Lab assay of single mutants.
Amino acid sequence: MALNTPQITPTKKITVRAIGEELPRGDYQRCPQCDMLFSLPEINSHQSAYCPRCQAKIRDGRDWSLTRLAAMAFTMLLLMPFAWGEPLLHIWLLGIRIDANVMQGIWQMTKQGDAITGSMVFFCVIGAPLILVTSIAYLWFGNRLGMNLRPVLLMLERLKEWVMLDIYLVGIGVASIKVQDYAHIQAGVGLFSFVALVILTTVTLSHLNVEELWERFYPQRPATRRDEKLRVCLGCHFTGYPDQRGRCPRCHIPLRLRRRHSLQKCWAALLASIVLLLPANLLPISIIYLNGGRQEDTILSGIMSLASSNIAVAGIVFIASILVPFTKVIVMFTLLLSIHFKCQQGLRTRILLLRMVTWIGRWSMLDLFVISLTMSLINRDQILAFTMGPAAFYFGAAVILTILAVEWLDSRLLWDAHESGNARFDD
């Protein structure tokens, strides 16, 4: 018995066209964080690309023209004298008006014999932002004059995390709450300039795509075929072959399989920071003279006294001054041990922890910024005066060393310790 099946006739004509040209192939790229070699397709503007294995951002879609970056830099340069030299806060102490600005706080630190601690604050609040705007201006002028731009481009990517104007702005709020127990506070004209400078700096850093600047100024022929001998440069993120001198053909720094002496430098910085954190938390970090009496505060006791007036601000200072430094030390110690013992479990967790400490590390400088600003506000000789204690130097040095330890660690070593050939990683 035959089955009668109805015929289905399409209502619209289906047209099949042959592909007349070869589909576009992607360029081969190595991930600078996990060293995976993959094919990167062509990316349009405002599109980002991520590593298929570790999800690290390979290409950032946010990109401004150099002219727009230069305009932002010149605007920031105009704001800087007002943000640093004009009063941020006014207080009335014992019937006398006192003005506080950024430069005055750094000068008070240096004047009291601790120039190293003052230079830490100076670099993060004044030096690094000033280098940022002058570097962008150098790129703008240098591109037109045919100057060598490689050193500036190499420095810009590392400079971003040292620009800490946003953290200093939080420190202004913390210092205001600490001082309000002794005097009446009012915002100064410099505060508005400083807030504007923070906003412009944040926007500029978020749109400063150094890798795209490398592509514009020093374009290189990408690798179009897969080759395990391809290496990625950690300076400019170019994937290719080393030249005859073993250097990256684009930025001219040595092109090595792994960062040289990464573990040794990381261990040295980490152990030194552990040693410095002990006096930083045991010795007094601030000293207040009130009517001839002397009151010393460690980091913890200062947080407890701050909690009596504002528990939320005390929580912020606790996280930045105690929780973050010790968390960074514990995480980095764990990561280094996992590399030495070739741990194969929990790779995803370790990668996330490394990215976390990379982002939060700079916030530990908050305590030094609060001390710097408070020193310029309260300084009335023996009637009422505020000065920093010996722990300030140890704390600042420990924070900087932990930042350097994270920067010096080559994250690809975590993958080397893991089993080879993993296309995915999980716990």
Rank of each mutant, 00 (worst) to 15 (best):
R59I: 04
I288E: 00
G302L: 01
D166T: 15
D99N: 08
I330C: 12
I177L: 14
L377Q: 02
D35A: 04
A2V: 05
M332F: 13
F425E: 12
K229I: 10
E22N: 09
Q264S: 06
L277T: 12
V232D: 08
R362K: 07
I126V: 14
W214S: 15
M36S: 07
G20K: 06
L347C: 14
R144L: 15
P10F: 06
I322R: 01
C54H: 00
F38S: 04
G396D: 02
N44F: 07
A187H: 08
M164I: 02
L278R: 02
A417K: 11
F386S: 00
A83F: 02
I299S: 09
L159N: 04
L257E: 12
C54I: 00
F74I: 09
T402G: 01
S372T: 07
C343D: 12
L270I: 13
L290R: 01
P279M: 15
I43N: 10
I96A: 04
F333D: 07
I274F: 14
S48L: 12
A392H: 01
M103G: 03
G396P: 05
A405L: 02
G146T: 04
C266P: 09
A18F: 10
S305V: 08
L132F: 13
R348V: 13
G146M: 04
G173V: 12
C251N: 00
I371M: 03
Y289L: 05
C343P: 15
I285E: 00
V179T: 13
G85P: 03
V313Q: 00
T349V: 14
Y28H: 09
Q186K: 15
L278S: 08
S193V: 05
I106V: 11
H46V: 06
G396H: 01
D297L: 06
R380E: 00
A320P: 01
S273F: 00
L139C: 05
S39D: 07
P325L: 01
G105V: 01
F82C: 05
L409C: 04
K57C: 07
Q7V: 03
I116V: 11
P222C: 14
I274D: 10
D27E: 09
R247Y: 13
F74S: 10
A115W: 03
F395I: 06
G173P: 02
L159Q: 03
L159T: 05
H261I: 03
S45C: 08
R158D: 12
L3N: 12
E42A: 06
I360Y: 08
D181M: 02
S376G: 04
I371V: 04
R62G: 12
T75M: 08
V16T: 09
S338G: 12
L3V: 05
V198R: 05
G346Q: 14
F192H: 10
V16S: 08
I8H: 08
I8V: 06
L278K: 05
D367F: 00
V232T: 13
W84L: 07
L323V: 11
D367I: 00
W140Q: 11
F194A: 08
D416C: 11
F318L: 10
H261D: 09
V174Y: 00
S308P: 13
G246K: 14
G293V: 12
T204M: 11
Y138S: 06
P81F: 04
R225C: 13
W64S: 10
L373P: 02
G118M: 03
G240T: 12
Q29N: 10
F326L: 08
A397C: 05
F122G: 02
L270P: 02
F395L: 11
K160E: 10
Q345L: 15
I91C: 03
S364C: 02
R250I: 10
L353S: 13
C34Y: 00
L352H: 10
T75R: 00
E21W: 05
C266K: 02
H340F: 10
Q244Y: 10
E157H: 13
L205Q: 15
L413W: 11
L373T: 04
L79Y: 15
E419F: 09
F122C: 10
Y28E: 08
R355I: 15
K111G: 15
L283F: 06
H261Y: 07
Q264C: 03
V232E: 13
W140P: 06
V170M: 10
Y394Q: 02
T67N: 08
E407H: 04
Q220E: 12
F194T: 08
F341C: 13
A392Y: 00
W64E: 03
V170G: 15
Q186H: 08
S206Y: 15
V121M: 13
Q29L: 06
A314K: 04
C251S: 09
C251M: 00
W415T: 10
L300G: 09
I131T: 14
P129L: 06
G292N: 11
R221L: 14
Y28V: 09
C31L: 00
N209A: 10
L40G: 08
I253G: 03
Q220M: 11
D60S: 09
C54M: 00
H237E: 12
L255H: 08
R216I: 10
R17S: 09
N281A: 11
I311R: 07
K265G: 02
L283N: 07
I319T: 09
K13M: 03
E157I: 15
S376H: 03
Y168N: 11
M388C: 04
P279I: 15
S301D: 01
C343Q: 15
C266M: 09
M147A: 05
